[in-house]
């Protein structure tokens, strides 16, 4: 689980991109294109390099009217998997 106060960061060289041809959002990274579903986009579009993990979960819980304890493990897993591939950083 990502630590409560840890701050997820989208590093330089990684960016969200609207793939108009395929009508979807993607995350563009060095030699990688990751197609995002609605949840993935919801998480990444709220990562601004200042918001810590706890606040990120609060916002997602509020915006999607979902219980914190239910979404926290999923969001943590999503961020951790991208961090392992050096696509996200956790400061």
């Amino acid at each position: 689980m990502i630590a409560q106060g840890a701050i997820p960061v989208i590093p330089r060289g990684v960016r969200l991109h609207r793939d108009a041809v395929r009508d979807r959002w993607v995350l563009l990274a060095p030699e990688k294109t990751i197609a995002l579903d609605e949840i993935g986009h919801a998480i990444l579009s709220r990562i601004d390099g200042r918001t810590d993990f706890t606040t990120l979960i609060d916002r997602l819980a509020e915006d999607y009217a979902a219980p914190r304890e239910q979404i926290a493990p999923d969001v943590s897993g999503f961020i951790a998997a991208l961090a392992e591939r050096r696509i996200l950083e956790v400061a």
């Binding site: 991109h17 793939d19 041809v21 563009l28 294109t33």
Partner: peptide, 11 residues
Amino acid sequence: FAEAAELGVLQ
């Protein structure tokens, strides 16, 4: 490059 992007190239 412009044609590529229009065609769907991302990278």
